[in-house]
């Protein structure tokens, strides 16, 4: 879901940068100094998790899990994701610095949406409800991410309409897988270490 450099138009790049900067600013305000190690090491964990390829039919997909990250971090998901994407831009040139703002927004904004809709039901004691909310968070994270990526491309030019459609369609199965995995993951955390979910953000 990373849009590489040199593709998007100036207005889209600037809009993405401004929105992400605002998100990062709010996220940093909410992150006390004592929270830094927690957010950082969690970001490392998600970075490592994104290296995992899960099979899907004859192909495979790598995990994103931004919905889950959103549930765990709330607004702090913005600093977390911008830091991870900066490193990717630095080491792998995947994404990149000019499109950093747009790419951060594409991943972090859906995570925040997932947080506002599903963070409350996930904390419920009912396991079925919790699993359902986890599924919703996974689907939301990828679904909105694909939509925002498509919007960024279409905003650059009408010519990108077909690619934008392909991106959304390709992400449909990924959405399902992320939903399933996030759902199981939330249940697991609830059984093994509920305080990770309980913390008030």
């Amino acid at each position: 879901m990373h849009i590489s450099e040199g593709v998007l138009s100036a207005p889209v790049l600037v809009t993405g940068a401004v929105l992400s900067a605002a998100g990062v600013f709010i996220g940093l305000k909410k992150m006390d100094y004592e929270k830094i190690p927690e957010v950082a090491v969690l970001t490392s964990a998600f970075f490592v998790a994104s290296l995992i390829h899960v099979p899907i039919g004859p192909s495979s997909t790598h995990l994103v899990l931004n919905g889950l990250l959103g549930i765990l971090l709330g607004w702090m998901v913005f600093p977390s994701i911008i830091v991870a994407l900066s490193l990717q831009a630095l080491l792998f040139q995947f994404g990149g610095f000019t499109s950093l703002g747009v790419n951060t927004f594409i991943m972090a904004a859906p995570a925040l949406i997932a947080y506002y809709i599903f963070a409350f039901p996930v904390r419920k004691t009912n396991h079925f409800l919790c699993a359902l909310a986890g599924f919703g968070a996974g689907v939301t994270g990828i679904g909105f991410g694909a939509l925002f990526a498509a919007a960024a491309l279409i905003g650059t030019g009408e010519a990108f309409l077909n690619i934008a459609k392909v991106i959304v369609v390709v992400h449909l199965p990924v959405m399902l897988i992320e939903g399933i995995i996030t759902s199981f993951c939330v249940i697991f955390l609830k059984k093994v270490k509920p305080e990770i979910l309980e913390v008030n953000r």
């Binding site: 004592e34 969690l42 964990a45 998790a49 899960v54 199981f184 270490k193």
Partner: peptide, 25 residues
């Protein structure tokens, strides 16, 4: 089964990272 296993693997990774971050702080 595969997805569940991966989910638990990631869950465990999150738990370990949380514990470690508390020790770091």
């Amino acid at each position: 089964h595969t997805y569940k296993t991966y989910a638990y693997l990631i869950g465990m990774l999150i738990v370990r990272s949380y514990d470690r971050s508390q020790r770091i702080y």
